[in-house]
Design a protein around this nucleic acid. Sequence first.
RNA 1: GCGGGCGUGGUGGAAUUGGUAGACACGCCAGACUUAGGAUCUGGUGACGAAAGUCGUGGGGGUUCAAGUCCCUUCGCCCGCACCA
Length: 846
Amino acid sequence: MSTRYNFRENEEKWQAAWKQASVYKAKEKGSKYYVLEMFPYPSGRLHMGHVRNYIIGDVFARFKRALGYSVLHPMGWDAFGLPAENAAIQHGVHPKTWTLQNIQLMREELQSLGISYDWTREILTCAPDYYSHEQKIFLDFLKQGIAYRKESFVNWDPVEGTVLANEQVIDGKGWRSGSPIERRKLFQWFLRITDFSQDLLDDLEPLNHWPEQVKTMQINWIGRSEGARILFSLIETNQVLEVFTTRPDTIFGASFLGISPDHPFVENLAKKDPALQTFITECRARGTSQKEIETAEKKGFNTNFTVQHPFLKNHTLPLYVANFVLMDYGTGVIFGCPAHDERDYDFAVKYQLTILPVIKGSNDEPSPYEGDGVLINSSFLNGLTVEQAKKEVIHRLVSKKLGKPEVSYKLRDWGISRQRYWGCPIPIIHCPTCGIVPVPDQQLPVKLPEDVVFDQPGNPLDLHPTWKYVACPTCGQAAERETDTFDTFFESSWYFARFCSPHDSAPFNKEMAEFWMPVDQYIGGIEHAILHLLYSRFFTKALKKCGYWDLSEPFQNLLTQGMVCHETYRDQAGVWIYPHEVEKREGRFVKISDGSFVKIGRSEKMSKSKCNVVPAAKIIEAYGADTARLFMLSDSPPERDFEWSEAGIEGNWRYLNKVWRLIVSHLINLQNIDLSKVPLTFTEKALETRKHTHKTIAHVTQCIERFHYNRYIAYLREFSNHLEEFSPSESSEKWALYEALHTFVLLISPALPHLAESLWEKLGHSSFVINQAWPKADPYLLIEEKAMLAIQINGKMRGTLETSPHLTEDEAKELVLELPFVKAQIQDKALIKFIYVPGRVVNVVF
RNA sequence: GCGGGCGUGGUGGAAUUGGUAGACACGCCAGACUUAGGAUCUGGUGACGAAAGUCGUGGGGGUUCAAGUCCCUUCGCCCGCACCA
């Protein structure tokens, strides 16, 4: 009898059998459960981060299937994106070829993991069959006023003559050219996500099964704040500048007005002021990323204009152009109150502006003081609290017609134009006569041309010799196609809907979508906490507005999983090297090629640049899918980072074999008895095993429901340790063993589906274990009659006492105070307190 | 800079949400067995101590009969910041 489990043979066998029987095909009947993992970008090979994500989802999908749900568990490819174009530039391979090859490889790897996907629903976002639908969706957005065009900034590389992604801007310079980047304005398409700000905020609250931190991040991102809009008139002209502030109460501490360099007023002014023009150019000599803008040194430019203070006659404030004032937030103009705002304070110190405290805290706080307090130096506001003062100022502004209350959001409209080839073409035609003309429905899809070249800077679509030249659909005159493509977040904002009816001629079938949606359990990386999830939520609402469905939120439950990390290694020269180039010899790590010592770095997120990646395919090849699955599940809870190690995978491989031996070696104990009859009485030993079996069912079920997968595996190990030592001597014990082994195999099946099938077969079944119902724990076998009571004296642990968990406080007191070690400690001192938590702890305080 | 997290033995992590810290493993140590293996089995393993015991959940302070868990403060690391996906 083989003592080793042949994973290669068995995994292949069961994968083929499942496929043959179409067991994972989703059917629209009964109670549905939609499990979705974030689909991958086909970057080349499946990495451990993907593997972890899909295994987490698979365990849950299999569990729900066993509980009797109709499960939808699909997979697809987020196939448009920048890396394909980079590959085209670097290696001369066409983005489509590169992408499809990657998908082919990754699909095979994914299938070898034995994940329960319904592959008949596979989606490729780069296929016209997918992206044509989003052109339709875009045109519907346009009709509803959700899509529009405006000018906005991009990262411009003046050497390459190309727009760069933020990722391609490193320290303010282009990644290839090394040339300083400038912000340049371009007409681009936007989606009015800001129209949904309040809905996106309000609908977050009932999402009880989303991680609190994700909700908090989204709330902060949307950034609702209540404040006031205040009008300031310029002394020198009769113009008015509008300021949004959340601190109108500090108006008497205002010492300057700061205006964004990108404000139209400033741009106008600069036409006649070369010095200001130079200042603006300086401010724009960096990328568009928020981090870059906010960490830049604070700089100002005195316009020599002044504005009238709304409440103080003969009091004016200087107007500075300030690089830290963002045009995208509020009105692009602020009033600076240096005594009570950090940034204003720094600015005032630099430009020697007045710093007048107007709020007094309870102590003498150092400037700037951003806390609560009582108003001082503030005319009619003196003595009021901050809250009261805000109300009063707004009231007075309204009566003077110099302002009004206002709610503002940090959330900005979503720019979806990309000046790139490998994306979905925006279905718009620019006509010199008719202007912007949507491509008519019957002319959809606008397909991406394949005959493009990447040997010159700029967008290959724009440079294509013929593609963009078309007749205007309205007047028939010569016109040009829009050559920008969609942001690839567009594809991932509705793919979950497409999965419900992936071959439908509409973007999705309403009936099907309303059957499967919302996604019951969504799983993906925490790095998507804001953008992808917010955009998908927005799309769901926008699609509702366009009549696609009657749904407001796409994802009922959300699990954000942690990253997969690995130790990093460097050779003697300090060059990063891969784990497979390293070996442990006599307790030290050496480079296999030359035996030199290897420097071990700390564990970091697996990345190609640090060479600490372990390819999924290699692991599956060496240990099999079930071992990889087990390791991924057993070591860390899903939401935490996962530490990949050679020792870890080895240990789990050994456990797999242990399970195999456990069942196989017990088979002899199940012979020659009638297992179909439940015995009327059980020996104490049999009963103990039965209790263990049912407690394990209860524990495991709860652990899986709560995604405590590492504890799920821990309970299985504890149970198998028990079963290893169990040797039945009479028939009720044999029956208890039979029950235990069958239950064990059922319980491991979501985690180790191939091994479970093999063992199920060994136990004499010809059906699939994955089609079996999930076991139910017998409540009578879960009852505890004994509890270990912890005895504390003055809060310190001093011993334990085995008792019934149902003792009354008086009974417990009587028992505990008679214990010798308790008596010895108390002696004749008076008892002050006796604390009793039934079944858990007593604390004797004297 | 702004927003959100995390921190428990040599290692990954447990700890019915304030009630016996270290479940379950990995590693290590000792032993057994053997057709000498990437095998299996048994025992040990938080630190200090001969023991009684003392100390222990990044550091400091606090609340409580009782703190890994709650509060304040501090340090370190990670994620996101709107054109990577």
